[in-house]
Nucleic acid binder design. Structure first.
Lengths: 224, 224
DNA sequence: CGCTCGGTTGATGCACATCAAAGGCTGTGG
DNA sequence: CCACAGCCTTTGATGTGCATCAACCGAGCG
């Protein structure tokens, strides 16, 4: 448990104290563990696998707001408020586990630990920066957005040069995240497959030439 | 000073303590008070007027990430970190004032006040929710985005039914915020002016029929 | 065995961007 | 005080990236 950044430097007993009343929840593929708009009594820490955080848009479809992988805190917003509803739904991507912690713990024990609060604030800040980065790309062409997404997904998971995405992801999910249709995603990515930049089988994506992706982000269209 | 949500419930001497070493900065129109990427030693609270928070995009132009009005905390991210750079530039919109507070104060005095930290966390959370809301509109047509922006600008300022935007804003700035060109913004808004939904002179915008705007957000195109 | 779901490909359309031009306003420097 | 440059606004003409629609294939699954 102390593997996770957020619990680093805590002893076993301290951790047990922080997590009192919590439980480890196992999810199969595509299980919904929180529901948008529901009264929020728990927050969570992702232990393994991944969860997508989605929000319904005006037109009805779900938009993916964030991909949460190992060590990420989900539903962190709701901790500081007395009554609150989940601002997103959380759905597992592939078999996953997360630690479900009652909100009360925050009021009772977490709140008294300034360092812990600051850590959470840092998590929130970095997620906010990601959202801002994405916002800054709103006018960018599709291939830039896809490249940026793939890179953000491998970066926030591991520092090693592993080039396989740590989660199964469909073209539709990519589209739901960056605001495009699955068809458009396919047109870009199958071209990349032909060029040997990426390799996909089913929903596992491997990046073969990561520097090409960085080129796309810098604005080089790739057709020269 | 205690008018502002964040300082509510604090006595004069407490506030003076929290703001020690700070100063009130007066800005004319379009003065840049923080610069993206600069080493961050201060954060701020907006006292009057407004500031736009911008970020350069890959292609060079600045994207507006947030409009900060009275009572808003700017550069709140940087408080918890020892060394950090401004994640955005801040530029005044019309004559404005903000309270410039040294980051050290956070380490020294703010940090020991759990309620204050939680208030800031709540501010961060609500800004994050705004970003998520906007992200959920990425596929929406332009008139929905503009309507949503206008409404968010009047809502976060005042609960009264005042229907004038609290800040001078150009079509280009609107475009820089929602990811569109000034020409496109004009085409939508001048149509609205003709229909008597809004009224603009120069950079002051008045909303005459706010329910029409809500209709647009719900997806009613308006041409029926 | 029919069902649904993900991936793929092609044809067509449209909402914007882009480009161009012109007028008004503001500030600035000769 | 005037000329000029730069920004904001507006309008029109043209172009295009991506959505939309439609169809097909293969795989998993009740």
């Amino acid at each position: 448990m102390s593997r996770f950044e957020i619990f680093r430097k805590y002893s076993r007993s301290q951790i047990l104290n922080l997590c009192e009343g919590g439980q480890i929840v196992f999810s199969r593929h595509r299980e919904r563990v929180f529901e948008f708009g529901e009264e929020a009594f728990y927050f969570g820490v992702v232990i393994s696998g991944a969860y997508k955080l989605t929000r319904p848009s005006v037109s009805g479809e779900d938009v993916i707001v964030h991909f949460s992988t190992q060590g990420d805190v989900v539903a962190a917003f709701i901790m500081a408020q007395a009554h609150s509803k989940y601002p997103v739904s959380a759905i597992s991507m592939g078999p996953s586990q997360f630690l479900k912690i009652p909100k009360i713990n925050f009021q009772n024990t977490w709140k008294n630990d300034v360092d812990l609060i600051l850590k959470i604030q840092n998590l929130l800040s970095s997620r906010m920066l990601m959202l801002q980065d994405q916002k800054a790309m709103s006018k960018a062409p599709l291939n830039q957005k896809i490249a940026a997404l793939l890179i953000s997904l491998i970066e926030n998971e591991t520092k090693v040069k592993k080039i396989e995405l740590p989660l199964p992801i469909t073209r539709k999910e990519i589209g739901d995240n960056i605001g495009a249709t699955p068809e458009s995603i396919i047109r870009v990515m199958s071209e990349w497959s032909k060029q040997g930049i990426i390799e996909t089988n089913d929903q596992q994506i491997k990046i073969l030439k990561i520097d090409k992706l960085f080129d796309f982000i810098k604005g080089n269209s790739g057709n020269d």
